[in-house]
Amino acid sequence: MSEEKMLVDVRELKQYFPVRTGWGKVLPLKAVDGVSFTIRHGETLGLVGESGCGKTTVGRTLLRLYKPTGGEFYFDGELVTEKNMPSLRKQMQMVFQDPYSSLNPRMTVEDIIGEPLDVHHLYSNKAERREKILSLMETVGLNAEHATRYAHEFSGGQRQRIGIARALAVNPKFIVCDEPVSALDVSIQAQVVNMFEELQEKLGVAYLFIAHDLLVVRHISHRIAVMYLGRMVELADADEIYDHPMHPYSKSLLSSVPIPDPRIARERRRIVLSGDIPSPLNAPSGCPFRTRCPYGQDDCAECMPELKEVESGHFVACHHMEDAARMKEGVQLR
């Protein structure tokens, strides 16, 4: 990684949740266990992984919706602490997954979008507030006449636009997008994803784009990180990771992407993993993926593999990359 100033610099982020098991016993659920990554100004980092691997937790912990158990988070060179978080909230925002539950049903669109302005006192009078709200609505493609309506009167796509307008209200530099298109149908997904791209060009915001739809992530991301059981297993440029995935987990994940060409799809070999994702309460020792890894060996259980830079800008956490590399031929995507 170069020495240029990163917007987001996360080091060894840890988020454990206490889980009560029986009488007074409390076990830590390691939702995120030592994740490090950086995001440049105006860059999109895609974060993928299967359900329950801690993607959403990473996003929420960055915004201090949870109190992190460990690790450091530098935002624009400044260490984020409990103290300076209230002022930093103006610079980081979040777009939520479910457009149906992320908007208060008792508030008008105007009040929903205006709330960040109210909270941070970003206007001097009523007229200025309204003007700002209307311009935000225009930015995300909503009509001014929608302002006095309630969230339940809108379609999923429009609701998500309201959510995006709310996130943009404070003019943030960084937005965590927590599966913002998963709840939308495909035609609307494209519109919303394209809007995210346009907004990035226009406003220069950086995204942490969390999703499980790998094609959407590839479309929007500059770089992609793959997570498994609270750990990051691979991090590389978007095209690099799709063309040359190195970690066995990434390979299997990417091989599950449907290809809209039957000829290629027929020749392609899918890597189907056996077994279920282990419980994060009771994670395997050493490499967390070893229980399902086709290349798992005895020494995998001994220690956790570090995220190493294998090629320039391509980080992988695996003890036996050479063995895994042989899998390469079978899974190439396009």
Binding site: L63, R89, S101, S102, N104, E115, P116, V119
Partner: peptide, 17 residues
């Protein structure tokens, strides 16, 4: 538990509000 409460928290809204 609704996400709009989480959204309000991420905006920086105070608990009483």
């Amino acid at each position: 538990e609704n996400e709009y409460v989480l959204a309000a928290k991420s905006i920086g809204t105070k608990s009483s509000r």
